[in-house]
């Protein structure tokens, strides 16, 4: 079943004389339950693509379907409902409302949706158990380490039980241990709940948790790598592709291997 379909999307920024084409007629699809990574050199348009797919931005040309709806045609009014029901988002930095405690951050959207109290509590218990947040629930965001924040962010994004989860370099500011932990959680959730995940990353190691990697370059689809064998094999394939596309870091290889 199709979860996402991107059809001939282009996006340009700026005015006539210094136009930047961030995306150039890109098309691809994601099926339900996939864990897709998006990679490419810096400035390739990964963030732009993710923003367009997650309703944060709109394309200049082209159409995007998510969960069967054409989000590029939805008015802002309906987008709010759509986001609540279908998508979750993890950013690199800013993920939590600083004024609210961890548990409040987690339940805020749900309580505004008029979801029954015990259901909310059930989900809260489930995800805080799952992401190991039980001791953090009463703390405030500025009292958390960055890794803890990212875990809370993941829980917050998952609380609404979205059909698809977008993540833009979620492990970018984490040390390798926290990063591995977070990725393992994401992989588990992807398997257990059949949550579709699309994740932008620079890092081959992070990408190796996915089961398909889409490479883009200069705003266009470049190639893709599908995981077939072990994670180590997949990792090597990704490194090779990065080398081919240019802009990958060879140091990744040395550090992880």
């Amino acid at each position: 079943m199709r979860m996402v379909e991107v059809k001939q999307v282009s996006k340009s920024f700026g005015a006539r004389n210094n136009l930047v084409r961030a995306l150039n007629n890109i098309s691809f699809t994601i099926d339900r339950g996939e864990f897709v990574g998006v990679m490419g050199p810096s400035g390739a348009g990964k963030t732009t693509l993710l923003n367009i797919m997650s309703t944060i931005d709109r394309p200049s040309v082209g159409r995007v379907y998510v969960a069967g709806q054409e989000i590029t045609a939805l008015p802002e009014r309906d987008l709010a409902t759509f986001r609540r029901e279908n998508i979750g988002f993890i950013f690199q930095d800013f993920n939590l409302l600083p004024a609210l405690s961890v548990s409040e951050n987690l339940v805020m959207v749900l309580s505004m949706l008029k979801i029954p109290r015990d259901e909310v509590q059930k989900r809260l218990a489930y995800y805080s158990e799952h992401l190991n947040l039980n001791k953090l629930l009463t703390r405030y965001p500025n009292e958390l380490s960055i890794g803890q924040k990212q875990r809370v962010a993941a829980a917050r994004a998952l609380m609404t039980q979205p059909k698809i989860l977008f993540a833009d370099e979620p492990t970018g500011s984490l040390d390798s241990k926290s990063a591995t932990e977070l990725l393992q959680y994401l992989a588990t959730i992807n398997l257990e709940n059949e949550t579709t995940i699309m994740m932008v990353t620079h890092d081959a190691f992070t990408a190796s948790y996915c089961n398909r990697i889409v490479f883009i370059k200069d705003g266009a689809f470049y190639s893709e790598v599908v995981r077939a064998g072990s994670r180590q094999q997949f990792f090597n394939q990704i490194i090779d592709m990065q080398a081919a596309i240019g802009g990958g870091k060879i140091s990744d290889f040395r550090n992880r291997d």
Binding site: T55, R77, A80, R83, E85, F94, L97, V109
Partner: peptide, 16 residues
């Protein structure tokens, strides 16, 4: 700004 952005992306309506 960023808090409002986060709320929008979490699915809160502009009215809320």
């Amino acid at each position: 700004r960023s808090e409002i952005g986060l709320m929008i992306i979490s699915g809160l309506s502009r009215g809320q």
